[in-house]
Design a binder for these strands. Structure first.
Lengths: 128, 128
DNA sequence: GCTAACCAAGCTGCGCTACGCCCCGATTTA
DNA sequence: TAAATCGGGGCGTAGCGCAGCTTGGTTAGC
């Protein structure tokens, strides 16, 4: 009952101070991701491109923070590659979980024929 | 109506020749994964460890082929890291083990000979 | 004086890949 | 039937290339 995957109004949202803009240092502290990693991610994720102010400093907004946390989770917890994260986040709006039900194990001898079994037995014996 | 009969051999299943054992070269051809990659995966995925026959050659079974295709999809399509695939497959296996129903289709075979063959089969399988 | 920007170069280890030797099984020869 | 030959796998391991940071150097704003 505690958490339901950090959505729009989850209590976890509270941990970010209520301000409109964040500089890279703040973002780094809040998300526990080093500044240089944030700068690097920018080169890898086209959808993580904060604006810059007059003097060229990055200006992050709340949405960026959520995105950063999501990337962090996919990369470090779920262990996707950067490309995997990119793929996944780009197609995330497309809600299609693709539930592929695994087949059961039908490995063994099922068809009811003595001849069938004997053939398989020979096959096995050839292994030796 | 016809689904009752088609359950065991779904269309996808047909792509593998119907045999019990495969050598690494065959597996490589069937799954389109190089032999040396298969050997490498063995060092990374504890659940992909084919038996070896007397001469030390790997002996894969059908279940391994399915597993290999699954790994391939996670690695190359979804772009997980190897560790990510491992995590995912290890927790995925914690589903329902699915009770295996068996031995009720043997009516046509004379009970005596079937039992003999099964015993012999087990005996052989122990050799691996 | 701290923080940020940019760029280049360096580092680590993941995920193969190449290499050299060995063995199996089919065919030939005796 | 056995022995000999031989080519196409199969084996394990060392080496390699690049993904993903990480560091260092320099310049500039608050």
């Amino acid at each position: 009952m505690q958490k339901a995957r950090a959505s729009k109004n989850s209590p976890e949202q509270k941990k970010f101070p209520d301000k409109l803009f964040y500089k890279i240092g703040e973002v780094s502290r809040l998300t526990k991701v080093e500044s240089y990693v944030l700068r690097y991610w920018e080169t890898e994720f086209p959808f993580l491109r904060p604006r810059k102010n007059k003097s060229g400093q990055r200006v992050y907004i709340r949405k960026d923070l959520d995105l950063i946390l999501r990337i962090k989770e996919l990369l470090y917890d779920q262990k996707y590659t950067i490309e995997g994260v990119r793929l996944r986040l780009e197609t995330e709006g497309t809600r299609e979980p693709k539930e592929v039900q695994e087949d059961n194990e039908n490995a063994a001898i099922s068809p009811g024929s003595l001849q069938y079994i004997k053939n398989r037995l020979r096959e096995i014996l050839q292994q030796f």
